[in-house]
Simulated assay, not measured.
Amino acid sequence: MAESREHTFTGTRGRNVAREWPHDRPRYLAVLVHGYGEHIGRYEYVADRLVRHGAAVYGLDHMGHGKSEGDRVLVEDFEDVVTDVHAVEERARAEHPGVPVVVIGHSMGGMIAARYAQRYGSGLAALVLSGPVIGEWAVVPALLAYEVPPDVPIDPATLSRDLSIGTAYAADPLVWHGPFKRTTLEAFATTLTTIAKSGTFGALPTLWVHGDDDQLVPLPGSRAGIETVKGTDFAERIYAGARHEVFNETNKDEVLDDVTTFIDRTLT
């Protein structure tokens, strides 16, 4: 695997931990945006593929996630998370001036990346959304119906057909295994509405990848959101039988081949 190093910075709500997988002469910069309850350390395989493809790769643990400060999985406003991701992009650009930037977001990170593209898309070369929480996500209204959201644990088997992924997820001390917090659910609802009302991605090249057996973020709900925001340069890849984490699926190399091929097209 590619070597990585960590650094810290003061984010919008406290100290954030970020990680870089360096490349001496990158063709592009990849900013990875992780999902709910997890951390950027789960993206080692993705980062390694991207480094070998010619990227310097950056990502952070969002507030309340992984090694970053904050109450666990508490997000009051996802606009703050978008701002933190932008700080990572600014550091990447400072280290590699003039190199194009690609943002890749998974699940909740796909939602953050979509909003990021609406705020900062004019400076991006491409956008990749993996199993994004966008459009209609039934989890949010269902849990907000309770004053105190019930603890509904994620079934690790829904992550990937490679069951070792779920086993490692369940044993990972940096992964949050507790219930959603109401404040975070309200922030999800607000951000989903904001994205729907904030226009398309315009000419930004965008790739959407999703498993058709994704039980955590079902395909139909995400499609509704994608149809609202996709711009004029859009492609999708839907993988038969794949579950939620397509970057960790049994066909992950096929998925990452599709991602790198898409990036190559945008860079030329």
Rank of each mutant, 00 (worst) to 15 (best):
G211N: 06
E44G: 14
L204S: 05
L267M: 14
V46R: 00
I263R: 02
D151N: 10
T232V: 10
L159V: 12
E89W: 10
G110F: 13
S222F: 04
L256K: 03
R52F: 01
V128C: 05
S198H: 10
Y146R: 12
A113S: 14
A224G: 05
T194F: 15
L143V: 10
G131S: 15
G241H: 05
G123W: 13
P149M: 08
H65K: 07
L207M: 10
E136G: 01
A92K: 00
A224E: 09
R52W: 02
D212S: 13
D71E: 15
S130C: 14
L124N: 04
P97H: 06
A92C: 09
W208K: 00
G54D: 10
G105L: 10
T266P: 02
I263A: 02
N248F: 02
E38Y: 05
Q118T: 09
A171I: 07
P173N: 06
A30G: 06
H7M: 12
T8Y: 08
E227R: 11
A87K: 12
R115P: 01
V101C: 05
A55C: 11
V99S: 06
A168P: 04
S222H: 05
I226F: 07
G135D: 05
I226G: 00
V246E: 01
R19G: 01
D162E: 15
D233M: 05
H7T: 06
Y45A: 11
D61V: 04
R15H: 10
Y239C: 03
L32M: 13
E227M: 15
E245T: 09
R13H: 09
V101D: 01
G11M: 00
P22A: 07
A87W: 01
W137I: 04
V246R: 00
A94W: 00
V51K: 03
S198E: 11
R91H: 12
F188I: 06
V73P: 00
F180S: 06
T8I: 05
L29H: 04
R93H: 07
G64V: 04
E227S: 07
P153S: 15
L174R: 07
H210F: 06
V101A: 08
F234S: 03
A56F: 01
E44L: 11
H210D: 00
A170N: 05
H106Y: 15
G211S: 11
T8D: 15
R93L: 15
P156Q: 09
R243P: 07
E69M: 09
G109M: 07
V139Y: 09
V246P: 03
L74H: 13
I238K: 02
L60G: 02
I104P: 01
T184C: 03
V217W: 03
R265S: 12
V128R: 00
Y120V: 03
R223F: 09
